[in-house]
Design a binder for these strands. Structure first.
Lengths: 346, 346
DNA sequence: GGGTCGATTTATAACGTTATAAATTTGGGT
DNA sequence: ACCCAAATTTATAACGTTATAAATCGACCC
């Protein structure tokens, strides 16, 4: 009799394999393998008997062997970008992904993208070494090289963000056009006589959508607008603060600013207050909220929520279907901004 | 001649293996394997020749095959806890770990711990399925079951946080005793006549250290103190706010509160201000700062910095040495609080 | 009783790598 | 020319799994 089940690391313990189960049941290894895969070729009675024996022995399949034999890694990899403009973005996305992958046998690996190195490197690395069955990444550019390479390779992937390529790919995106439009509308309703927005770098697709939505509201209102050209959402908070400190004096009041990130919202708000402006009288902000931190800030922000956890969960669900051969056109999800209950209180 | 090197996903392309390299060089597979491992048994000239051929063919070793044959996964797994009291904790730790693992051939996987499920589950899962060579996790308890099981199994791991077990294990911890003491001293110097602190749940080791450090300063000063017993650092921000709203009226002024997390600091600060207290006159806060967000908050916080990225990097460096057999006693690191330059400005 | 069919089980080989042990080559020394 | 040891290379097997093809077993039919 082998060691007690569930015993790890003890000296005499040998990990049970298909062979162990085969010996215990008196069947061939092949039969056991197929029985555990629940193949209809194996008699139902046998399948049950094998399952029981495997459970009793504490058998678990060896992932390395399965991977070698089948060529399937049963791994989804998330490329983690080095930016951290959005607090907890990575954390929430990972949590959402994990939740979607839970119980599927798929594992999540992190492939880091390092500051100053080409974003294409992690993708190439995964492809070349076949380290995953599917890939997830964010912050797509209009003609994102990662998308191009993966499409050429026929490798399953889901992006957080759209691209401008004609051939479709799976994505989960936030409707930043709708966000910027709604945010600008809120500012207008609050009485702002000038509209502003801090945009991400222009190479990112979501920059374009933010601009479209913002400008639509601007044109409808006929109000003047301000878009800083010296800083972006990715600029250090200090740079954003400096930009506004240098320019706010010339703004008609009250003016409004759409902030597509919490860091920039905090930065601008604190600076303007320090310069003696009064929020609600001299200016208004509407921020995109992705964490709970902004809720705690006083004076309270106007905000619109983007659910990163849910985005991660949706991306996880999609990539699982894609690796099973589902068509990409069934997995193009545009998440709508949700009115933020927390913002008006207090 | 095989397909061009670096070509992925093309129909005729067959991934180069040791066999491919062997054929190209006219050597045996075994020789090629050893040559690429840079074994001194193989003539230097041959090693060079093989390396060149491998590079030209674009050969990369198959991790699944290596893992199956050697039993080494070359994977480090991080257990990601579901709490999110500290903004960007996971993100920074992952970034630090990735940085330490960069170029080592070790990959990082995420093993999630789900809300409402035992913290021991992910550890058992990894052990049973042999999914990693080393493990990283946070928020240790005084007698942490995960530590116990891993020690019994002889499995390499590094914790973020200490335990009370007599048998030593590797850890990277922040000196929360020193933090709480220094924070309380700051409050005293600012003229506070009552000291307070919001502690994490008592089962966590770092709760004890925070309490020790805090109480040492309290006793030295002879001041009265206040520790809420209805909420902890893990309580929802609203609960912390409610607790202070219900009690602040009875506090002598100015009173001080040590906040071991940014969320609680924001929560308490905003609530007290809303209740009409003036920061700097009626109360002072000293917060542990782990992100850059607090820097943007006005009125400025007094804060002491904890570098989570560095903690992750140190843990990564340690776990790499541990899987190579280094003794755990060489990897017990206590990080000291660093004076926060950002706090006094503005 | 022999043949056939379907259901079920089995033997063999292969995925790509490395550990073990054996084989071959090389260079001296005599 | 021969032998021995060191240097270098090679054959074989194994890690644990699954795909392919072949084998066994009843049961049924004529």
């Amino acid at each position: 009799m082998v060691a007690k089940e569930g015993e790890f690391g003890s000296v005499a313990y040998k990990k049970p394999t298909l062979k162990t189960v085969a010996e215990k049941t008196g069947l061939a290894v092949t039969t056991v393998s197929r029985a555990l895969l629940d193949s209809p070729q194996i008699a139902l009675e046998t399948r049950k008997r094998v399952a029981a024996a495997a459970k009793e022995l504490g058998y678990v399949p060896d992932r390395a062997a399965q991977r070698l034999r089948t060529g399937k890694t049963r791994v989804i990899s998330l490329i983690l970008e080095p930016h951290n403009e959005i607090p907890d973005f990575g954390r929430s996305m990972i949590a959402g992904l994990s939740y979607a992958l839970k119980g599927t046998g798929f594992h999540l690996t992190i492939t880091p993208e390092f500051q100053g190195e080409p974003p294409i490197d992690p993708v190439r690395y995964i492809l070349k070494n076949h380290l995953a069955d599917g890939l997830i990444f964010s912050r797509t550019e209009l003609f994102d090289e990662r998308v191009k390479i993966l499409q050429e390779a026929g490798f399953p992937f889901v992006t957080h963000g759209r691209t401008e390529f004609t051939s479709p790919h799976a994505f989960v995106d936030y409707d930043n056009d709708a966000f910027a439009y709604q945010a600008a509308r809120q500012l207008i309703e609050l009485g702002c006589v000038q509209l502003g927005i801090v945009l991400p770098p222009g190479k990112f697709t979501f920059c374009q959508y933010l601009k479209y939505g913002f400008m639509r509201a601007v044109r409808e209102s006929g109000l003047p607008f301000d878009i800083p050209d010296d800083v972006s959402l990715d600029s250090p908070a200090e740079a954003i603060q400096a930009s506004y400190r240098a320019r706010f004096a010339g703004f008609p009041r009250p003016f409004g600013v759409v902030c597509a990130g919490e860091t920039s919202a905090l930065a601008i708000s604190s600076t303007l207050i320090e310069e003696g402006l009064e929020p609600g009288r001299d200016f208004h902000l509407v921020a995109k909220r992705t964490s709970n931190l902004l809720n705690l800030y006083r004076p309270a922000f106007n905000s619109i929520y983007e659910d990163i956890f849910e985005a991660g969960e949706l991306m996880g669900q999609s990539i699982l279907k894609l690796v099973n051969g589902a068509p990409v056109t069934d997995h193009q999800i545009l998440m709508q901004p949700t009115a933020d209950k927390a913002n008006r209180a207090a």
